[in-house]
Nucleic acid binder design. Sequence first.
RNA 1: GCGCCCGUAGCUCAGUUGGAUAGAGCAGCUGCCUUCUAAGCAGCUGGCCGGGGGUUCGAAUCCCUCCGGGCGUACCA
Length: 556
Amino acid sequence: MINNVYKIIADAVTPLMPSWGISELPRFEVQTPKIEAHGDLATNLAMLLARPLRRAPRQVAEEIKAAIEQATDAFSAIEIAGPGFINFRFGNAFWHGNLYKILHEDRAYLRPDIGGGARVQVEFVSANPTGPLHIGHGRGAAVGLALSNLLSAAGFGVEREFYINDAGRQVKLLGLSVHIRYRQLLGEAVELPEDSYRGDYIADAAQALIDEKGDTYRNMAFEDCREEIVDWSYKRMLADLKADLESFGVVFDTWKSEKSLFASGKVADALDALRAAGHVYEKDGAVWFASSAFGDEKDRVVVKADGEFTYFASDIAYHKDKLDRGFDSIIDIWGADHHGYISRVGAALQAFGLDRDKFRVLLVQIVSLLRGGEPVKMSKRSGEFITLREVVDEVGADIAKFIFLTRRCDSHLDFDIETAKAQSSENPVYYVQYAHARINSIFRQAPSKGFQGVDRNAMGTIDVSCLVEADEIGLIKKLCRYPAVFEGAATSCEPHRITYYLQELAGEFHAFYRNHRVLVEDDRQLGLARMALARAVEVVLHEGLSILGVNAPEEM
RNA sequence: GCGCCCGUAGCUCAGUUGGAUAGAGCAGCUGCCUUCUAAGCAGCUGGCCGGGGGUUCGAAUCCCUCCGGGCGUACCA
């Protein structure tokens, strides 16, 4: 809609350019005004032209208005207002026409193609397989899921990836922790080191190891069975992560192993390539990547003096590998505490001669878990924390996801379990789902109210021209805003815009529902038209919720 | 010290990438169930957009500078 109008304006005005003495139009905007009195769409073109033409903006606006009226009858009114805005209004027929597009579930309408098939990889969660997921991972998962759905709907070829940190110190520590617990369970008097993992899940793993392997590793030094135990332990943890994510509704396309990057020589190759290009040097017994040459604050170590690779070394190889796999862009979703890594990873990509603009990071801020307004105490060291699974079991996946998506991801989020659990108006999820359920209820009632045999999947043939009341037209206008919201959300990678839109749409529907009967028994035509409108609302609610990864229930 | 993020109603937060008179939800008051689901609707109250400068037709939004909060600043992950 906006794009069409942009073109109409540009085409209508182009013939005027010679007389204005300009060869190019400024980058003007077409927007939906906040206030209804300002029309359905507005452009700032006249104000932008005022300066180069050295004329009063309203005077320029008059000229533009005349040109547009000459060129098209698409608008029912064109008005000049304020400092020089040109406001456009559409007639009811225009809105009825748009309603048909939604009723035909025109994909090109609800899902404008902005990706053009470009391949995007979204990497998210990527939690260390050393313990259960916590609430922060849940937020990352919800954002990653919604973003993937959004981009996929917008015409990108999306691949969801989970990066497994199965090569570093953390998984070794996990293995050690499990081994020691294992020996304790078998009666040995051994102590857990200070920095090891604790928590019941370690003991559970140790018990499972006994069940599976007996006392095979009982009298062995950790070093002698390290590989087997580490391997066994993290795979067990990973299986749990995967199961938790699946029950949260998140499924990945690929699981990329850090260890495999080492095994295939990609880490060594990447460092060699940097070395060959002169971006690597040795100092103090360590190997450094000269990232400061590419905008990083300082150079970074890639191989420590003890010969171990740093986490950053495999990260360099990993991100190079992502682009080598042919993605047009790669999006990482990280916890906000990792923001310092953005510039160094970007530096590495640039050093390889790759386009670092293809690399984008979404930072997801910390989640504060509350219960009834009080912070929930969590201590990682003692293993006392509430897991994502526990939260999801308590409040439900839909609610958790929706709440995670009610904020921009770079702002802090308070997640109150009690509030989330409450089946009350405090809960925005229900508000939206309820609208969807109400519409379904209408269609269930229809046959008993004189509307037998109305197929709600085929309402595109119903004459809706009798929908002329302010509530009705307003609701249609709201529906027509969806594509623009969708496009904005996709291009800015901000799925929360969909969340807000859905709340607004649900609100308008609830008001409409309260004020007008849909199944009007003494006016069949009006009843059918309103059913068509309700159906369109249902389609858009369903569409939006599906992007958020939230269910749209038919009954509540 | 340096870097990144944030500061908007009592609380939690949006704000269409610089637009017109600043928006929701919750909390607080007031009404609305004999009619398709009251998990709902209508109304009232609530603001120096952290402070101060600047950029321009126009700033919550961009720049500078203070104040205040979070995070980062490892041969940790």
